[in-house]
Design a protein around this nucleic acid. Structure first.
Lengths: 222, 222
DNA sequence: GTCGGGTAACTTACCGGTCGGTCACTTTGG
DNA sequence: CCAAAGTGACCGACCGGTAAGTTACCCGAC
């Protein structure tokens, strides 16, 4: 019943404006696919979550793949932007903490985004897989920059080691997100603080004296 | 036509002895489920891999769940044994390297074992899920001991931090295994060496002077 | 030796159910 | 009254699981 949206609605309009319905369906789809994954999530369930029936899904999005792809694009774009914004600043270990914090903040608003991008039940080929891989690669690439700069400190590491290190970093982020799902009461800031403490134990020297900035963060109380 | 196996075969035997066929099916099932996961793997495909047809699978194992469970038990037992054997020895960071090396050695013989235990397409409840969770918990528990001893060095870490640390460690192992799948030409020893180099860059002080043993391992050349 | 016959191994064909996707129809608002 | 929104009913494909029939092997009888 808003004032200006009504003006654009033509004859034969019934129920909800198209844009609103679209958003509603996308929200429902993100919930369904985020919880059950692409393979086990069903379009009928998405429709039920949105309070409509299955043919409406196909009226609006044409296919299950297209529906998932729309959710995936939203989630992937948001995550990439969040991580990209965390790449600014000093290039020491504190960047890892900032990146993780940015991911947590983004996921706090939309908890299912991570699962949409890293859904393990996606088909092993096809456009859907390629789209997801594209976002994953983009996120990984940004992580790789930090890892490479970090590992450059030692001449013993081979190029392949840096690639492995990048994947280890991804595994760390992924595990942190998974742990968070089982402890939803934690805020994004608390999660970042926990990670910070663990890093501090792992490498106290690299952490305490990163160089010019005089300290990676002000949150440590020791 | 072998000499001793023939003696045990009774009347009505046709084709392959039961034990051999059983092993053949299990091998095929491990390949199918390891590659596609429980949900997407089909019993007909398992049968095709084993060179037989679907009803034989049910003759031998009764149900898809039972078949998967048999594979899972083999894989889980092997992995738990491998990790347990690596827990002996000094309790510093070198234990992490030893653990990872043990996992790699176990997986070198049977590459699909990891995916069977950590299959993301398993149902979210039921005996199959509980069995997989049991192995995961057992593996995690052993990892948690090492992580807890390690984090105990700092009084700032809270109990929940240790739990998070355990999951981060699991994420690291998981990522290393995933990376290995994309670089199959690497041997288990090479993988362990790569991980060792990365750890050395991350925490050189904890690594170089672990205390009484005079050094975590003899493989470092620096 | 060879010839049934019993038994285990194996297959073809099918059932019930679910899911992605579609069509003809009804409802609703302008 | 008309067009868009929305729905019940259906289709084909696929999958887990099953029943009934066929094939091959061993063994004992003659």
């Amino acid at each position: 019943m808003s004032n200006h949206a009504k003006a654009t609605r033509g004859v034969g309009t019934k129920g909800m404006p198209r844009k609103d319905r679209e958003r509603l369906i996308l929200e429902a789809a993100a919930g369904e696919f985020g919880a059950k994954g692409y393979a086990r999530g069903s379009t009928a369930q998405v429709a039920a979550r949105a309070g409509i029936t299955k043919p409406m899904i196909y009226e609006y999005f044409g296919s299950k793949d297209s529906l998932y792809l729309t959710c995936l694009d939203q989630a992937g774009t948001r995550l990439v932007e969040a991580v990209a914004s965390a790449q600014r600043g000093p290039s020491d270990l504190s960047r890892a903490v900032r990146t993780l914090e940015a991911v947590f903040r983004a996921l706090a608003a939309r908890p299912h985004d991570w699962e949409l991008v890293y859904d393990g039940t996606l088909p092993a080929e096809g456009p859907l897989y390629e789209a997801a891989t594209g976002y994953r690669r983009e996120l990984n690439r940004m992580g790789a920059v930090g890892v490479a700069e970090f590992l450059r400190a030692s001449p013993a590491v081979e190029p392949l080691d840096a690639d492995l290190g990048t994947h280890l970093w991804y595994g760390t982020v992924s595990a942190a997100v998974a742990w968070w799902r089982h402890h939803p009461e934690q805020t994004a800031d608390e999660m970042a603080a926990r990670f910070e403490r663990i890093v501090a134990v792992l490498c106290p020297d690299l952490w305490a004296a990163p160089g010019t900035t005089g300290g990676p963060s002000g949150t440590r109380s020791t």
